[in-house]
């Protein structure tokens, strides 16, 4: 791949990511503001966003934040919230023939939900190149870190994001991405199984087990459909 192609692929990634970059800004600001209200300094907020770079687990950490902080509880909860990344990296890992070994691992360090979903979307249509992936991941990463910092500084000035519906930006993005994965009735079965298991688990267990439960139920649904198809074949 020559230099022009690399630039073109990178900006292609940035372009499809643009709306998600805008959507993550209010979330970063809100995270920074929440963290500041829990007593984290701006530097601590920035370090957390830069090192962890996983919004869901960072919000959960703020939920269970205590004085003094318990690193064991925070590490374990991050592991649980982010366990879905194992499935995501296993899935996208099979679609990265254009990546060298080390590049694949480096890319995975920046695997966030939105980046992963856009990478899957790209891989379904064309060859996913390292430059395209960098276009998805790098600007998004810096916007996350910088808006967290800005949010922690602005803190109290932001007011209640719920009143203007901004907290809904994140689930709305997921709804739109989900619509893109529709491939017919089989997808319907996967979604129904996942939604059912997730809601049930969410009502019964604390924390974020519901994400793992929904993912597992979706996979089981596919396996059941597969087995049936074999039985009739």
């Amino acid at each position: 791949m020559n230099r022009m192609d690399v630039v073109q692929e990178f900006s292609g990634g940035v372009k499809v990511m643009a709306s998600l970059i805008v959507a993550v800004m209010p979330i970063g600001l809100v995270f920074g503001a929440v963290a500041a209200s829990k007593g984290l300094s701006s530097l601590e907020v920035t370090l957390m966003s830069a090192f962890v770079f996983a919004g869901g687990s960072q919000f959960v950490a703020m939920d269970i934040w205590s004085h003094p902080v318990s690193w064991g509880a925070l590490g374990f909860s991050a592991l649980l919230v982010n366990i879905r990344h194992v499935l995501m990296s296993a899935s996208i890992g099979t679609k990265m023939p254009a990546f060298s070994g080390p590049a694949k691992y480096a890319a995975m360090l920046l695997l966030a939900d939105e980046i992963w979903a856009m990478a899957e979307t790209r891989a379904a249509q064309a060859r996913l190149s390292p430059a395209w992936y960098a276009g998805l991941a790098v600007p998004f990463y810096f916007v996350w870190v910088l808006t967290s910092l800005a949010g922690s500084v602005a803190g109290a000035f932001l007011g209640n994001p719920k009143a203007i519906g901004l907290d809904f930006a994140f689930p709305a993005v997921f709804v739109v991405l989900l619509m893109g994965f529709w491939k017919g009735r089989e997808t319907g079965a996967v979604l129904a199984a996942s939604a059912g298991a997730a809601v049930l688990t969410h009502q019964l267990l604390p924390g974020v087990w519901y994400i793992a439960a929904g993912a597992a139920a979706g996979v089981v649904a596919t396996l059941v459909i597969d087995r049936r198809r074999e039985a009739y074949a």
Binding site: R84, L87, M88, A90, S91, D113, W116, A117, E120, P171, F174, V175, L177, L178, F181, W182, T187, V190, L191, A193, S194, A195, A197, A198, V199, H202, Y210, I211, A212, A213, G214, A215, A217, G218, V219, A221, T222
Partner: peptide
């Protein structure tokens, strides 16, 4: 099946 299942699980509640 993982991508749609995870996305669905995240937004289901």
């Amino acid at each position: 099946a993982i991508p749609p299942a995870v996305l669905m699980a995240v937004i289901a509640p």
